[in-house]
Simulated assay, not measured.
Amino acid sequence: MISNASSTEAHGADAQPNVLLDDFLAYTLALQQPAHTGAAAQGSCAQGQLRWVWLDDGVLQLGPVHTTCTTPSVLLSAGIHGDETAPLELLSRLVSDLAAGRATLACRLLVVLGNIGAMRAARRYLDDDLNRLFSGGYAEVPASREASRAAALEEAARQFFTAAQVAHPRGSRWHLDLHTAIRPSVFEQFALLPHTRTPVAPALVAWLGAARIAAVLLHTTKSRTYSHFSAQTCQARACTLELGQVRPFGQNDLTHFAATDTALRDLLAGYSPAAGAEGSPRVPRVFTVIDQITKHSEAFELLVAADVPNFTPFPQGTVLARDGAYRYVVQHEQERLVFPNPGVKPGLRAGLLVIEAPREALFALPGPAVSA
């Protein structure tokens, strides 16, 4: 559950190092917790310009001491898959810089480090994929160690955005869920936008361009990801960001994520994304989901190389998977395979199939959902 922090002011929070803010990732992995009835549960930082509140393991809220009805609210999450370490290190460094005044915060910020048990075990998840348990999916696996965490993270997002909802317009709510992919990718850094039956906000597209995101994948059906939950339930501008490839803790070169890091800091500081050389925002290449490969049993075979990159194209007629009588055959002139993973549990998605779409599709009202 999301804990209620103490209302007691933290005295001297700027005068001495605070391990919680200096290295929020290490603090979280060590399972440290501030005293709920003492001064350590909240305080001030950045020379008294910011307030912070520890809400739960891996859940930290920061914001300016003084806010107005136009102050945006931004949720940044990472580690929903425990082995995706680079975004965790990126967010922890960002928290440290904000607390020390080395970065500017002009919005309400909620930082969420997701599957802590899986992070500590260096695993993607313990029992069930956390990013398939939101929007109430956790109720279907009550014995799962991920179920209670999914419920807690839903509640954290709901409380955070509800506090902003009355006074703040919809456009001031953002959720960027940071990931890294299991496999390499033709487009190393790409975004997945949830299916909400509303056009994509131009401001989000401009931000993705500023972050040098090379491709955008448009979902065509509802899902149980964290970004879909925040988009659908909290009316946030939300997306899932794939920023590179999975690496163990300590083996990430964070300079590789410089464009995303700069774009995140600009968003938190209230800066508008820079326009392209022609004076208009950079727009990533656009792909839309047209189908998925489903693993029906343990006899499932994914008929592609074990190291095939995301977005690899396959021509019409190619058999990509089989499982008993089930076959997946490429129906379009060309389909690209994203997130191929034969190791999922039976009944789950073992790959997405996408085709390229006009960039104008980003700003059009989505059509009816298709099977995916």
Rank of each mutant, 00 (worst) to 15 (best):
residue 1 M to Y: 02
residue 7 S to G: 09
residue 10 A to D: 13
residue 12 G to T: 10
residue 12 G to E: 13
residue 14 D to P: 00
residue 20 L to Y: 13
residue 25 L to E: 06
residue 25 L to T: 05
residue 26 A to S: 15
residue 28 T to G: 02
residue 30 A to W: 02
residue 30 A to E: 12
residue 32 Q to M: 09
residue 33 Q to K: 14
residue 34 P to L: 02
residue 39 A to I: 12
residue 44 S to I: 06
residue 46 A to M: 06
residue 48 G to F: 10
residue 49 Q to G: 06
residue 52 W to Y: 15
residue 56 D to E: 15
residue 57 D to N: 08
residue 59 V to W: 04
residue 62 L to P: 09
residue 68 T to M: 01
residue 75 L to Q: 09
residue 76 L to M: 08
residue 77 S to I: 04
residue 78 A to G: 05
residue 83 D to W: 03
residue 87 P to Q: 03
residue 89 E to S: 07
residue 93 R to V: 07
residue 98 L to F: 11
residue 101 G to P: 10
residue 118 A to C: 11
residue 120 R to W: 07
residue 123 R to F: 01
residue 125 Y to I: 01
residue 126 L to Y: 02
residue 140 E to H: 13
residue 142 P to K: 08
residue 145 R to P: 01
residue 145 R to W: 01
residue 148 S to M: 03
residue 148 S to Y: 02
residue 148 S to G: 11
residue 151 A to S: 10
residue 152 A to Y: 10
residue 154 E to D: 03
residue 155 E to R: 07
residue 157 A to I: 05
residue 160 F to T: 07
residue 162 T to Q: 15
residue 168 H to M: 11
residue 169 P to R: 08
residue 169 P to C: 12
residue 170 R to K: 13
residue 183 R to N: 07
residue 189 Q to N: 14
residue 189 Q to E: 12
residue 191 A to M: 14
residue 191 A to I: 11
residue 194 P to Q: 05
residue 196 T to N: 04
residue 200 V to F: 05
residue 201 A to W: 00
residue 209 G to F: 04
residue 212 R to P: 08
residue 214 A to S: 11
residue 220 T to H: 10
residue 223 S to C: 08
residue 225 T to I: 02
residue 230 S to D: 05
residue 230 S to T: 15
residue 232 Q to T: 01
residue 233 T to S: 08
residue 234 C to T: 07
residue 236 A to N: 05
residue 236 A to I: 03
residue 236 A to E: 04
residue 238 A to Y: 04
residue 240 T to V: 12
residue 241 L to P: 13
residue 244 G to M: 12
residue 249 F to N: 08
residue 253 D to V: 07
residue 259 A to V: 05
residue 262 T to H: 11
residue 270 G to Q: 02
residue 272 S to Y: 02
residue 277 A to T: 09
residue 277 A to R: 11
residue 279 G to Y: 04
residue 287 F to S: 03
residue 289 V to C: 14
residue 292 Q to G: 08
residue 293 I to Q: 01
residue 295 K to R: 15
residue 296 H to V: 00
residue 297 S to W: 02
residue 297 S to P: 06
residue 300 F to V: 08
residue 300 F to Q: 08
residue 302 L to W: 02
residue 307 D to W: 02
residue 308 V to P: 06
residue 308 V to N: 05
residue 311 F to M: 11
residue 311 F to P: 06
residue 311 F to G: 01
residue 316 Q to C: 15
residue 318 T to F: 03
residue 320 L to T: 05
residue 321 A to G: 12
residue 331 Q to R: 14
residue 333 E to Y: 06
residue 334 Q to P: 00
residue 342 P to N: 07
residue 345 K to T: 13
residue 347 G to R: 14
residue 353 L to Q: 00
residue 354 V to D: 04
residue 354 V to G: 05
residue 355 I to L: 03
residue 356 E to T: 12
residue 357 A to H: 07
residue 357 A to R: 09
residue 360 E to P: 00
residue 360 E to F: 00
residue 363 F to A: 13
residue 364 A to N: 14
residue 369 A to N: 09
residue 369 A to D: 15
residue 372 A to V: 07
